[in-house]
Nucleic acid binder design. Structure first.
Length: 467
RNA sequence: GGCGGGGUAGCCAAGUGGUAAGGUCGGGGUCUGCAAAACCUCUAUUCGCGGGUUCGAUUCCCGCCCCCGCCUCCA
């Protein structure tokens, strides 16, 4: 079964074939965070979707080269540094660091590079692109000294979003500078310096200022990945104007098709509304961790719903995820015990349905459905004693393969000494048939996050709801 | 108004022109000193509403309703 992905540009499912079919290299660009505060879990939903995509492509033996930008200069970062009374770089630095920590917590693979908007090389690349656009009459400098893209000169503008330019109307959410522009839809390539920018500015052929947000991605993508990308991702809210602008700028410079597959992820919702900083209805990863959930639990919770469907974030959903992961943990523990180091006795071809689910535009629900069916069936066989060590080993091998995509295996943590003491005391209490003491010790263990189970092979101690 | 996404059991969520995966919660059972885990079992005569096509539609077509998003901050 071929790998099929939904392309926003065509609004259809398309078979995926990278430009470099022989080398199997996939060039992937993903819009990253603006580091003016901590990213919220809605942002991470998008990054998790991209991680799932990258990991699945890699499972299918593609070599992914991925770039994610870090926007460290814009209105909000400047405003933040001003109100904090510190230089821009000093203001954004802790948020950059926190972002990378959060990626690790969520087990999101690092991109090959994370270019920053304020890199001198990147600024230079942006200025070069703007020069080209000016030379081609696709851009102009307005009376306010800023440079704008002239969308009327780019007929394809609006094609990605399926917008009719004459229908564009201002929502009034952004400071209106319409009087300086030829068309309301013209967007800034270079923002002329003004007082509010303080010391933040770069020299350019059009005077001091800073780059517009959209040009940043065009410059970084083409510089680091080339003029044509295989996949470009982001949240649906990036479709317009951001990605539309990227197409216009990049293709305006190169004359080549910029992106072959556009992929967008639906929003994370809270109480039926889009999670967003401006509404204030957001949770950062740290907020969720503070409630006692682990990174992999958040990972699972945000990943288990198809990326194109809106996902409502609830604590109930977090609890469901915790339970589901516990089920997987226990299953793996049983398999490991059964396999006991034996070699795999059968091919893992039996598990192909999982990967085929993902081939279908990352249908994670179908894939997980198959996983849980497999868990039930193998558990039943273990109960009946009809699953041998070699088979258990084969299923473990299968798990290792699919977990390259899921990345949700729990870490096996060693028993802390005081827990081991309690556990041993409980074993003794049970030998003495002192049920009362045994139950007390079970409660004590539970209070420390460890669960005691009595099986026919004796007491088992398991970490509950952990990392 | 334009352009999209979604509406399937308490909650989350797959799916197919032929009669509804899976997760979670809850009830019952096996096991257990009691539990836990695991397994078994029950929980949508029904897939937003109304038409149409069809032997048959949740799935195709038409119309409508509701929710969410985008229409120059936004993942």
């Amino acid at each position: 079964m071929p790998l099929r992905l939904f392309n926003t540009y065509s609004r259809t499912l398309e078979e995926f074939h990278p430009l470099d079919s022989a080398g199997r290299e996939v060039k992937m660009y993903t819009c990253g965070p603006t580091v003016y505060s901590h990213a919220h879990i809605g942002n991470f939903r998008a990054y998790l979707f991209e991680d799932l995509l990258q990991r699945h492509l890699e499972l299918r033996e593609f070599k992914v080269r991925r770039v994610m930008n870090i926007t460290d200069v814009d209105d909000k970062t400047i405003q933040g540094s001003r109100s904090a009374g510190i230089p821009l770089a000093e203001f954004t630095s802790p948020f950059k660091q926190a972002f990378f920590e959060d990626l690790d917590t969520l087990r999101i693979k690092r991109a090959d590079s994370f270019p920053e908007a304020t890199d001198a090389d990147q600024i230079a690349a942006m200025i070069e692109m703007i020069k080209t656009l000016m030379a081609r009459d696709l851009a102009y400098q307005a009376e306010d000294k800023s440079v704008y893209f002239r969308i009327n000169k780019f007929p394809a503008y609006g094609r990605l979003a399926h917008f009719d330019l004459s229908e564009l109307r201002s929502t009034g959410r952004v400071k209106s500078d319409e009087y300086d522009k030829e068309h309301v839809g013209d967007f800034a390539l270079w923002k002329a310096w003004d007082e509010e920018d303080g010391p933040v500015c770069w020299e350019s052929p059009w005077g001091p200022g800073r780059p517009g947000w959209h040009i940043e991605c065009s410059a970084m993508a083409t510089q680091l990945l080339g003029e044509q990308l295989d996949i470009h991702c982001g949240g649906v809210d990036n479709i317009f104007p951001h990605h539309e602008a990227e197409i216009a700028q990049t293709e305006g410079c190169t004359g080549k098709k910029f992106v072959r597959y556009w992929m967008h992820c639906a929003h994370l919702m809270v109480d039926g509304q889009k999670m967003s900083k401006s509404v204030g209805n957001f949770y950062t990863l740290r907020d969720v961790l503070a409630k006692g959930y682990s990174g992999r639990e958040v990972r699972y919770a945000l990943m288990r719903v198809h990326y194109r469907a809106p996902l409502n974030f609830t604590w109930e959903g977090m609890e469901e995820s915790r339970q589901a992961l516990g089920r997987i943990d226990d299953w793996l523990a049983r398999l490991r015990e059964k396999a006991n180091g034996a070699g795999a006795s059968q091919s893992t071809k039996q598990g192909e349905q999982f990967e085929e689910g993902l081939d279908d535009d990352l249908n994670i629900s179908a894939a997980l459905g198959f996983l849980f069916e497999t868990i039930r069936e193998t558990n039943r066989a273990l109960d009946l004693g009809s699953l041998d060590a070699g088979e258990a080993s084969a299923w473990l091998q299968w798990w290792e393969r699919i977990d390259r995509v899921l990345a949700i295996t729990g870490k096996e943590s060693a028993l802390p000494p005081e827990v081991a003491v309690l556990a041993e005391a409980r074993v003794q209490a049970r030998l003495a048939k002192d049920w009362r003491k045994s139950d007390e010790l079970r409660d004590e263990l539970a209070a420390r996050g460890w669960e005691a189970r009595d099986t026919k092979d004796g007491q088992k101690i398991t970490r509950r709801s952990g990392v």
